[in-house]
């Protein structure tokens, strides 16, 4: 299904994530969550599910829910299974004539709750084929507990459990390619996006994910001013750099067909992106040039592979 995107019309919709939540000033996750929910058609209801994490503790601190829709949080590691339970109940009650109308099921988990502790639950839910969307707001570390490394944290990044020391260059391991792992589940729709430009990319992918039958997965970059160490106001610049340097490519995989949805006019060096954040600061110290070289190589390889998959 393709829809026209009209940014002004979308901005007029009543937000389904309200103000008054306790996410930090300038939090990327808040922008991601409200952006995804904006793709819901106003007449449709939704049940929103959260994994424990920044978003969850700040959007439903008793008695204040920031959701206009029904909401359930159960634990850190089971958001996808939780969403499948709601969807199963919907099917059962609908069959018995006890609920009517369209209800959509949308789960939000951070990278900790998605790449790591909730990974099994996510894989199981996707395999079972529930009609749901799982959204990972990827801020590349355990931010709620104070910036600990996750399997999503990029190599060399400084976190509190991958500190930079005299013998350690920040995180040693590469970032796990979760989006690709989700593609391997052969589900109808997988996409990677970010709140960028006029939100067209994020909106259309969210809409497609919500309104495609079956399990869909969105991986959305959600900068964290605290954890990434940049001035909160600079969020849009950081995202633009991530996308234009191909650190975070925008693409989608629909029924197995890969499509790059944005190709930078001029691919920026990864250095530009790395320089924008304190978590990579040590990479610019004399003697650490190899880190930047290696990071560039990695990014180039992955980008080339993506272009190949998408048919050049």
């Amino acid at each position: 299904m393709s829809i026209r995107y009209n940014q002004k019309r979308e901005a007029e919709k009543q937000p389904r994530l309200t103000g008054g939540h306790r996410m930090c000033a300038g939090c990327g996750a808040g922008i991601v969550v409200s952006g995804v929910l904006r793709a819901l058609e106003p007449e449709d209801r939704a049940v929103v599910v959260n994994a424990t994490g920044c978003v969850e503790v700040s959007t439903f601190m008793y008695p204040y829910t920031a959701y206009m829709d029904s909401f359930i949080h159960s634990a850190f590691e089971n958001a996808a299974a939780t969403c499948s339970g709601v969807e199963a109940a919907y099917n059962a009650l609908k069959r018995r004539g006890k609920v009517d109308g369209t209800v959509k099921f949308i789960t939000f988990g951070g990278d900790g709750g998605t790449y790591d502790i909730g990974f099994q639950s996510l894989s199981g839910a996707m395999e079972r084929g529930h009609d749901m969307v799982y959204v990972c707001y990827d801020n590349e570390a355990y931010m709620n507990t104070g910036v600990q490394r996750s399997s999503s944290t990029p190599r060399f990044s400084r976190t509190t459990t991958s500190p930079v020391g005299s013998v350690q260059p920040g995180k040693r391991q590469q970032k796990k390619d979760l989006t690709e792992i989700l593609v391997a589940h052969n589900i109808p729709y997988v996409a990677q996006t970010a709140p960028i430009g006029n939100f067209r990319d994020l909106h259309l992918k969210s809409h497609k994910a919500i309104y495609t039958a079956g399990p869909c997965f969105l991986n959305i970059l959600a900068p964290c001013p605290r954890g990434w160490d940049y001035p909160a106001a600079k969020l849009a610049d950081i995202i633009k750099l991530a996308v234009d340097s191909c650190v975070w490519p925008l693409f989608e995989v629909e029924e197995g067909q890969w499509r790059v949805t944005y190709t930078p006019k001029k691919k920026l060096p990864v250095e530009d992106y790395l320089r924008s954040q304190g978590r990579f600061r040590h990479m610019f110290q004399p003697g650490n040039e190899w880190m930047i070289e290696e990071a560039q190589q990695q990014i180039d390889q992955k980008w080339e592979r993506l272009l190949e998959r998408a048919g050049g």
Partner: peptide
């Protein structure tokens, strides 16, 4: 009234 700022506000403000 281009509305660009609206979706960028994390606080729906």
């Amino acid at each position: 009234h281009c509305m660009l700022c609206v979706p960028y506000c994390p606080d729906s403000a």
